[in-house]
Design a protein around this nucleic acid. Structure first.
Lengths: 189, 189
DNA sequence: TTCCCATACTCAAGAATATGACTAATCATA
DNA sequence: TATGATTAGTCATATTCTTGAGTATGGGAA
């Protein structure tokens, strides 16, 4: 039920096509939700049918035509209702953690390789988020922007994304260190 | 496809009944995956049919009988294959982040209330994880345990859970501060 | 002594998500 | 001048996850 509201929240900052939304929900920028293009196109269709978003056709000459969507008053009211209702707790669900959980009983080498790769990906996201944050606060320093800026929501979710990716990066680096050490030294029960 | 492997990984530390597993996958201990009892019972049935786990009936007098499961050699081999294959990236997916993303355009009060509650929950999990870590490393200090301990997988995933919950707590507290400040002071575009 | 909670588990149905295959045009690159 | 990447979508199917309801027993509190 929340992809719906994630789309509404993402559309608050202007008009987007399904294609643009899909990129935002796929690449780093999706610091508060993630979804595939097919899901987003389907969701936009439903939202339009419910009158929560409205789209307008934009005829392009050099590219296929596209439809740009924006949130209607009804859509904003729906978001308001959603925000007032209880949130379901969020959980970690990560393939890599399953592998680490089992790492004493299986070959550690591929797990170490995947941790290294994940650390690299997280580090890349950290940079993306840092740049995005700098862009969002414009010239202002952070405290000033957070106190008086007009639109801080995306900044705040981006801060969460940044913290999450930093944690991921640091944990992956630390764990690879531990596992590399262990593969060279003896363990005792 | 990964609940299957999460169950196998969880069963590596001894025998569990479906009911016990369900509690572990629900409460704090689930630092690497989360699932409802119904899913787990169904998964155990499938895993047993595939020969990846084996169960034995334990007759109890004061309580209903139960079945305790353990991983078979085939199950361990399946985990090995899983660990060697690529992991799918993990994403944040959180109702609360959707609400924060929209917070400039909707009533902030319920969002602040939910952030406060979430911070409380995260702080409680931090304590649970800290106690669990202390128990897992026994008398040893962390460096010693990580270097020479017999089974560090659960400890490492628990470290990730701890980091995640600390981040969540700190972020929630910081954001509630920001939003409370803003609701008392004027903003300019 | 009634009621609720914990143990231990099952079944069915529905909503949400993921996978894979397709159309169709333009643009850059090799 | 093929080749692949990018823009802009659609359709169908499969898997996974969630919701809701039920069964049965024993123990403790009101």
């Amino acid at each position: 039920m929340a992809l719906k509201h994630a789309v509404l929240a993402a559309l608050l900052d202007g008009e987007y096509s399904g294609y643009q939304l899909a990129k935002a929900f796929d690449v780093g920028v999706a610091n508060f939700w993630h979804a595939l293009p097919q899901q987003l196109y389907a969701e936009l269709t439903r939202l339009e049918a419910e009158g929560l978003v409205a789209g307008r056709q934009v005829v392009q000459e050099t590219r296929p035509n596209k439809r740009l969507f924006h949130v209607t008053d009804e859509g904003l009211a729906e978001l308001e209702r959603f925000a007032a209702a209880a949130s379901r707790p969020s959980f970690i669900r990560d393939d890599l953690l399953v592998k680490v959980q089992a790492v004493d009983r299986i070959d550690a080498a591929p797990v170490i390789a995947q941790l290294t790769e994940r650390a690299r990906m997280a580090a890349a996201k950290v940079e993306i988020f840092e740049q995005l944050l700098a862009r969002l606060r414009g010239g202002l320093d952070e405290a000033e922007f957070l106190a008086h800026g007009a639109r801080v929501g995306p900044y705040l979710t981006c801060l969460r994304g940044l913290g999450f990716e930093r944690e991921t990066r640091d944990w992956c680096e630390r764990i690879t260190g531990v596992l590399r050490e262990r593969s060279g030294t003896p363990q005792h029960p």
